[in-house]
Amino acid sequence: MKERKSLRPESAVQVRSSSARPDPALNREIQTKIGQQLRAIYDDVVDQGVPDRFAELLRNLDSQAARAKIADKDAGE
């Protein structure tokens, strides 16, 4: 019979009690670097703006929703 190997190294397996606060897997420096990189990527996406066609579709949906809301209100009176 073939022995199954764990995907995680033995050093990564830790037993914690439910009352103990788990230590972060990444130190503060690494967490900070990841946060900076995520913000930089997100800022690039935000700076790209909304394509004109997409903005037009959103305006159409908003106007249709507004008309439907008015029609529902008028039908309820």
Results as ranks from 00 to 15, higher is better:
52 D>M: 13
22 P>Q: 06
23 D>F: 08
35 G>M: 01
9 P>A: 15
53 R>A: 15
21 R>H: 07
66 A>Y: 14
57 L>E: 06
29 E>C: 05
69 K>L: 12
65 A>W: 12
60 N>Y: 09
53 R>I: 01
8 R>A: 13
10 E>C: 09
57 L>T: 06
54 F>H: 14
5 K>I: 05
7 L>S: 12
40 A>W: 08
75 A>F: 13
64 Q>T: 00
19 S>W: 14
67 R>A: 12
44 D>R: 11
13 V>N: 11
26 L>W: 02
29 E>S: 05
1 M>N: 12
39 R>T: 05
40 A>I: 02
64 Q>F: 12
35 G>F: 05
17 S>Q: 09
27 N>P: 05
51 P>L: 07
30 I>A: 15
70 I>G: 07
62 D>E: 09
24 P>K: 04
37 Q>K: 14
33 K>E: 00
59 R>V: 02
18 S>L: 14
5 K>H: 09
40 A>G: 04
15 V>I: 08
20 A>D: 02
31 Q>E: 02
32 T>S: 13
63 S>F: 09
57 L>A: 07
40 A>C: 07
42 Y>M: 01
63 S>I: 04
63 S>M: 02
42 Y>H: 14
61 L>W: 10
25 A>S: 08
60 N>C: 10
65 A>I: 03
46 V>F: 09
30 I>F: 10
46 V>M: 05
22 P>M: 02
50 V>M: 15
77 E>G: 08
24 P>N: 01
48 Q>R: 14
48 Q>T: 09
39 R>V: 01
36 Q>E: 02
55 A>I: 05
29 E>D: 06
19 S>D: 07
19 S>V: 04
46 V>K: 12
56 E>S: 15
25 A>L: 07
71 A>R: 15
47 D>Q: 12
47 D>E: 08
67 R>P: 04
23 D>G: 03
48 Q>W: 15
32 T>H: 12
21 R>S: 07
35 G>N: 06
54 F>L: 14
19 S>P: 05
58 L>T: 02
56 E>G: 06
29 E>Y: 07
69 K>G: 10
38 L>E: 00
67 R>F: 13
22 P>H: 01
25 A>F: 10
29 E>I: 02
69 K>C: 08
55 A>T: 00
43 D>R: 13
44 D>M: 07
66 A>K: 14
1 M>I: 00
69 K>N: 10
8 R>K: 10
33 K>T: 01
26 L>D: 00
55 A>V: 04
44 D>W: 08
26 L>S: 06
5 K>M: 12
28 R>H: 09
21 R>G: 00
38 L>M: 11
28 R>T: 00
70 I>N: 13
72 D>S: 09
64 Q>P: 03
52 D>I: 06
43 D>P: 00
71 A>N: 11
16 R>M: 15
54 F>Y: 14
20 A>W: 10
37 Q>A: 08
33 K>A: 09
28 R>S: 00
54 F>I: 03
